[in-house]
């Protein structure tokens, strides 16, 4: 009996989303198959990795991921240029950590200025992220969305508690938008519906089902992503068809495995390599489960994942 490859043809597809402007704009999403299942459908765009930078020096990052940016991380503009020019970043994610009330409590105006400065120094797409303080983010991101008008940035993250103002700002200034919910497919669907009901075009959305680090809840993110992707493809559920982002670096570089010294835990092996692999393997797993956009920190981890992606396609 001749073997017929059991191919799946799905009725749905993931929206392609383009960010940035001009020659350096990038597009991700657009496939009509599960991740890396190009043998049965079309995968027009490769996943994109954005380098994470911050508006303030990364005092809370562990030594091993601080070091590669030592010379530039005192200034977000230098940091961004370094990622673009030296590391070859295809996109940059600026996290406005300094605006958090428990950190420097920088104002929305300060943040907007940083955004402007960074944008005038780079030509690759910019992702603008708040400090994950729901109230403060809704002021900060509104100001930043305006400051970045017409640059086709990504604004994030809109959450249930603050989405209204952020959605309005992204819409008024022609940006893309990350909608984040907490590890639950129904919450994610619900938030996407609420946002599109405000008149926001669903093809401009990016879903963040919430990341977690390898060993610290990865299996939850992994399965929520797989379920979202199956809903998009097999059930043709339009509310689940935006591409997904995995915000990997911030979850990975706070856990013990990326910080404990080999001298204290000899069984865990070389700390520098361990940290890089932790970020890279978290990222690779989430690509396999459905992410099209990654936000990462360590240059070696990014390079390893880039190699992995090119082997995949």
């Amino acid at each position: 009996m001749a073997f017929v490859i059991p191919k799946e043809t799905y009725s749905g597809k993931v929206y392609p989303v383009t960010i940035g402007t001009g020659d350096n704009a990038v597009t991700f999403g657009g496939e009509n198959v599960l991740p890396f299942n190009g043998f049965e459908g079309s995968t027009p765009n490769k996943p994109v990795i954005a380098y994470e930078i911050q508006d303030i020096p990364p005092s809370d990052w562990p030594e091993n991921v601080k070091k590669p940016f030592e010379a530039v991380s005192g200034d977000p503009v230098k940091w961004a240029k370094h990622c673009q020019d030296t590391l070859g970043a295809r996109a940059i994610a600026l996290r406005l950590t300094g605006t958090h009330p428990d950190r420097e409590n920088l104002s929305a105006g300060d943040a907007a200025k940083t955004v402007k400065d960074v944008l005038s120094a780079i030509s690759v797409p910019l992702i603008i992220l708040g400090s994950n303080h729901a109230e403060k983010d809704s002021q900060v991101l509104v100001a930043c969305a305006e400051a970045a008008k017409e640059k086709n940035c990504v604004i994030g993250k809109a959450q249930e508690a603050n989405y209204k103002t952020i959605v309005a700002a992204a819409m008024a200034n022609n940006h893309k938008l990350i909608a984040m919910s907490e590890l639950d497919i129904n919450l994610s669907k619900q938030l996407n519906i609420l946002i599109t009901q405000m008149g926001f075009d669903k093809e401009r959305l990016i879903t963040d089902p919430m990341s977690s680090a390898l060993g610290y809840g990865l299996e939850y993110t992994y399965s929520v992503m797989e379920r979202i992707r199956l809903a998009a493809l097999a059930q043709n559920d339009a509310t689940m068809q935006p591409p997904m982002v995995a915000d990997v670096g911030m979850y990975v570089w706070k856990i013990k495995e990326t910080q404990a010294l080999e001298a204290d835990l000899p069984m865990w092996g070389d700390l520098a390599k361990r940290g890089v692999l932790w970020e890279a393997s978290t990222a690779a797993s989430l690509l396999i489960s459905g992410a099209e956009l990654l936000i990462m920190r360590h240059p070696e981890a990014v390079q390893a994942v880039e190699k992995f992606i090119s082997e995949m396609s």
Partner: peptide, 28 residues
């Protein structure tokens, strides 16, 4: 390690590696 990641996630039952390296083992 990342190729092994693909195997772990997608259905391999035995994954052959070139060396036993502690940091690699811990992640896998």
């Amino acid at each position: 390690s990342l190729i092994a990641v693909a195997g772990v996630a997608k259905y391999s039952s035995i994954i052959v590696l070139s060396s036993v390296t502690k940091w690699k083992s811990l992640a896998l």
